[in-house]
């Protein structure tokens, strides 16, 4: 009995991850010593190496302004704006949310679920772009393969508007 239960657990443990590969991203928003601080707008997306298809993962913008007025500055995330941001209807479920304070923010995406969905196998670049009112703009890129064959951690770092961007992949 005990043995069968163990076996079952083992089967489940090996089966489940294959069904739902995971992409986790940790974004460090640095505290800045500036006279006028506004929280950054941040966009995160995946771009396929061949073909360049874009998968929108997250867009953080000021959602407190009246009449969706915070959308006015979305264009300042210039790369994202050109990579489909311009045509994105916001707010968008599972993608858009409010701006966040300085600190470490973790986002988890699972295969099969929005916004990742059934992402085609291939080489990708994860883009994180930050733009701050009265501040600067910066893009951090992290290359990755999908689906991941093994658990892997990788990352990159910004100079000023973005700190460490850490990507964890689980098969």
């Amino acid at each position: 009995m005990q043995k069968r239960k163990l076996l079952l657990t083992a089967v489940l443990a090996s089966a489940l991850p294959a069904l739902a590969a995971e992409l986790s991203v940790k974004i460090d928003i640095p505290q800045l010593a500036v006279a006028e601080y506004h929280r950054p707008y941040i966009a995160m997306w995946l771009e396929k190496a061949d073909g360049g298809q874009v998968t929108q993962l997250a867009v953080w913008y000021d959602q407190k302004k009246k009449d969706n007025g915070g959308t006015k500055w979305l264009k300042d995330m210039r790369q994202w704006w050109r990579k489909g941001g311009r045509d994105l209807e916001v707010p968008l479920d599972a993608v858009t949310s409010a701006t966040r304070a300085p600190g470490l923010h973790a986002l988890n995406f699972a295969a099969g679920k929005a916004p990742l969905g059934q992402l085609a196998a291939g080489e990708y670049t994860l883009f994180v772009e930050a733009s701050r009112e009265a501040g600067g703009r910066e893009v951090v890129r992290v290359p990755l393969s999908w689906p991941p064959k093994e658990a892997r951690s990788t990352g990159s770092k910004g100079q000023e508007e973005l700190g460490n961007v850490t990507v964890q992949l689980k098969p």
Binding site: L32, A35, R132, G135, G136, E160, E161
Partner: peptide
């Protein structure tokens, strides 16, 4: 009193490079 020293050209540089 803290003053801000901000270089021009942020549009082409990207980062602000402000000094307090």
């Amino acid at each position: 009193l803290t003053v801000a020293v901000v270089p021009g050209g942020v549009k082409y540089r990207g980062v602000l490079k402000e000094t307090a």
